[in-house]
Amino acid sequence: MSLQTLPLPPSELGESPFWHPTEKSLYWSDIQGQAVHAWHPESGRHRQWRMPSEPGCCAPAAGGGLVIGLRNGFYLLDTAKHSADPTALACLALLPPDQHDTAVLRLNDGRCDTAGRFWAGSVISPRTAPDAALWCLQADAPSATGYRVRQMAANNFTANGLAFSPDDRTMYWSNTPEHRIDRFDFDVATGDITNRRPWVQFERKVEGKPYGGRPDGAAVDVEGHYWVAMYEGGCVLQLSPAGDVLQRIATPVVCPTMVCFGGDDLRTLYITSARAGRPAEEQNARVPAGALFSTRVSAPGLPVNFFQLQR
């Protein structure tokens, strides 16, 4: 399987890639670089929008633009405007300060479900307590702002790996420092999640022993396989619905961060990676830390879901 390095500048912390089907473009966020990017493979055009804080995740919005999870809440970016335009970014909903202290918490990995809700987990730094949570944003006409935010789960340090099964009955969510991926029963009609239980537990780092990394961002294909980037493991794993490793794709960087499926047939797997905090030899390597990659896979992925804005 041939892995291609994309002709793009490295990201400090590349995350949240998705393929926009109508724009035929790859979008992703650079969390530490505080920017959102878009790349059109056919023309080579690369755009970026600077953010006022870390963009932990992004997703396309129905009608145009992006919904973005920043440090303190959810925002809508008008991608037809330049990021220097003060009207390009509009706040949809802030997270409650009594549950989300922005001094130590920020939004991290997230995506939309098929009903058009935007889900985003948070990360706590320093990791003094498992106070990171999972939040859900949805359009809600009776609310004062037109949008409602609910806390859906808690007890996490670094929320990652959010994905949904093809039948909309299972939600995946990982706790990266704990090396664990959990599963929930998911009701797409109500947005409720129940029956949280461990799904896959990876080995922790032990001095003197080979280390396979810890689960970071992920995506699901049409056959229900879960593809997960293994941070510090230098690979992407394809897991069966039973949690068995079906395939390992080695990456030329130590810290891949997330994957998505793209291209017209959704059989191109895109991979982001991290540069921030990596040793100089990784940052200055022929294929540098933070680079983006692509490879072809046999089964297509699920198409990206669009956030449904308030009508």
Rank of each mutant, 00 (worst) to 15 (best):
W28Y: 09
A61Q: 10
A120W: 01
T87W: 00
W28Q: 11
L77E: 07
G56H: 12
G69E: 09
G73D: 03
V67C: 00
K81H: 01
N108Q: 12
W39F: 13
G69T: 08
Y75N: 02
V104E: 08
K24H: 14
W28M: 10
A84T: 12
E42G: 08
T87I: 00
N108D: 12
T114W: 00
T114I: 04
K24M: 08
A84N: 13
P41D: 12
G33D: 01
L66I: 06
W39E: 09
P97S: 11
H82E: 12
D98W: 01
K24D: 13
I31V: 14
S29F: 05
P55M: 05
L95S: 02
H82W: 00
A88M: 07
G110T: 08
D101F: 00
G33C: 11
W39K: 11
V104Q: 13
G33H: 13
D30S: 10
V123I: 15
A90M: 07
L26I: 08
A35L: 06
N108T: 07
P96V: 00
R45S: 14
N108P: 07
T87M: 00
G116K: 02
L95E: 03
A62V: 03
L89Y: 01
A59C: 13
V67Q: 01
L107E: 02
A80E: 15
H46F: 10
A61Y: 02
G116R: 03
G73W: 03
Q34L: 14
L66T: 05
A80V: 08
A59R: 02
V67R: 01
A84H: 13
P86K: 04
G121D: 10
A38H: 11
L92D: 01
D98E: 14
R50Q: 15
L105H: 12
P96S: 10
H46G: 12
H46S: 12
G33W: 12
R45Y: 00
W49H: 14
Q99T: 01
L89W: 02
A61I: 09
P52C: 12
Q34C: 14
P60K: 10
A93M: 03
P41F: 11
H37Y: 15
L107M: 14
Y75W: 15
A90H: 04
G64H: 02
D85R: 06
D30H: 14
G69F: 05
I31P: 03
C58Q: 12
H82N: 13
G73L: 03
T87K: 14
Q48G: 04
F118P: 07
R71C: 09
R50K: 13
I31C: 12
F74E: 06
G73Q: 05
R50H: 13
N72H: 14
N108Y: 10
G69N: 09
P41I: 10
A62W: 02
P96N: 07
Q34Y: 14
L70D: 08
S122L: 11
N72T: 04
E42A: 15
P52M: 11
H46R: 07
D109C: 03
A35F: 02
C57F: 05
G116N: 07
N72L: 00
A62T: 10
A62Q: 12
L70T: 02
Q32T: 14
S83Q: 04
K81G: 01
L26A: 11
L26Q: 09
R111Y: 04
C91Y: 00
S53P: 05
G65D: 05
S29H: 10
